[in-house]
Amino acid sequence: MGNIIEIKGLNKIFRSKENDVQALENIDLSIEEGSFVSIIGGSGCGKSTLLRIIGGLETEYEGEYLFDNAPVKGPSREKGFIFQDHRLLPWLTVEGNIRFSLPKDKKKDDELIRKNLELVGLTGFERSFPRQLSGGMAQRVAIARALANKPRILLLDEPFGALDAITRMNLQEQILKIWHEEKITMIIVTHDIDEAVYLGGTVVVMTPRPGRIKRIQKVDLGTPRRRTGTQFTIARDEIYKEFFSDAEIPIEYNI
């Protein structure tokens, strides 16, 4: 398959009266359609900025960015975006929130809503309000909402950052399952090395000030993926080294 995303020599500077912040410097990145890419890096290295540019939420930058061989003018349904907060409208039910997001001709499609709630394991919560859901459930509704709009690409900005470890692993499994079934290109931003390695077939490592891509690493954990075992450990160590010099790697990571 071809590349759905082509970024060449992209620079992003946030200008203000006091100072300019170079959030991204000379980014080159191609993403193949149907792949799963993780972007990892410390706080402030421009991960969110890069994802927002890809999603069309940020349209001022220098350099080239093509989505499906065409420039991007703004956000759209085909570029699904999962924010760190679930961003459900508190005055609408789960069902209402999904309906709200749908195009006009699909608004009455109850079957579409039902199917996507089933996909994230939330059958039976159609009439619940966001305040009645846990953080993990709310984030799953946000995912169902994005999927119901049949995006070509799903962009996830630290979607599980605020969740506990167990919920997090559950959602990682669900996201992988959805990726297998729906064959949507996915890009996840995270600062959790394990998450990046477990989910991404490609891991993009970024460093801050200015935000740059330091390394792009392929990961093959086989199918199905496993969180333990040599392949996982090796891949994780490789990424770890990008952040710390060898001497600093804690013993437990040196297998």
Binding site: L57, G74, P75, R77, K79, G80, R87, L89, F100, S101
Partner: peptide, 11 residues
């Protein structure tokens, strides 16, 4: 952020 959401879904 709700207005940003509305943009994503072309409301």
């Amino acid at each position: 952020r709700y207005f940003e959401l509305a943009q994503v879904y072309e409301v």
